[in-house]
């Protein structure tokens, strides 16, 4: 463990708390992509299946339990509790364009061709692109509530902080995880446009609005 990874994981936790908080205070899931949230459930279930056979640490174990359960809870909030506030006509990104290619890529580019490794690799690739439906939805509406942008910023910071973590691990432990690194860089890159608007508008006290 190093400070970058710890802060990254904390940013990830923060993003989840912000999202749940947003839904509770506004009593709505407006502006939240159900598809992206469903993809995160799939990401966590396929990656953390090793809960049952691999022991890393209490930290690792408890975080995995938290990510699986919180993502299911969020899906429940969007799909049942606040369903009347969900507008499916705005959440139209085709997830099969993400899930299919990620699965094929996982079959081709993996560390070991077995069931658990392929699921892990699939989850890494899918996580990298799972934000697409959410970004697509914001592109369509051209705006976002401020608290939703805080959620996305924390989520982007989480993966961005993993990059210095990998650099640090390379120099201190000599470990390199090319699959995680490439996917992580792609994942972080997807946030660049968002971060630009977030920093230049939201952090200056303005509303998040995309140029028409």
């Amino acid at each position: 463990m190093n400070v970058f990874r710890l802060l990254g994981d904390l940013a990830h936790l923060a993003s989840i708390f912000i999202l749940v908080h947003k839904m509770h205070i506004t009593r709505s899931c407006r502006g939240i992509s159900f598809k992206t949230q469903a993809l995160y459930v799939l990401v966590f279930l396929t990656r953390y299946l090793d809960l049952f056979w691999a022991w890393i640490s209490w930290y690792n174990f408890l975080m995995k339990i938290f990510f699986i359960s919180s993502s299911c809870y969020i899906l429940y909030l969007v799909h049942y509790r606040f369903r009347p506030t969900y507008d499916p006509s705005l959440d139209t990104f085709k997830v099969e364009y993400l899930v299919g290619p990620c699965f094929v890529l996982a079959l081709i580019f993996n560390y070991h061709f077995d069931f658990s490794e392929i699921l892990w690799t699939f989850s890494i690739y899918l996580e990298a692109v799972a934000i697409f439906p959410q970004l697509f939805m914001m592109q369509r509406t051209g705006e976002a509530e401020t608290i939703t942008t805080h959620y996305l910023a924390a989520l982007g910071v989480y993966r961005a902080l993993y990059i210095p973590n990998w650099i640090y691990r390379y120099y201190t432990e000599g470990t390199v995880d090319p699959i995680a690194i490439v996917a992580g860089i792609v994942q972080t890159g997807l946030y660049l446009d968002f971060f630009y608007v977030y920093v230049t508008k939201v952090l200056q006290g303005q509303k998040f609005e995309l140029p028409a």
């Binding site: 990830h12 890393i56 070991h112 892990w120 995880d177």
Partner: peptide, 10 residues
Amino acid sequence: DEGNVVHDEL
């Protein structure tokens, strides 16, 4: 062959 890959990151 990396048959025993340990994924210690979240």
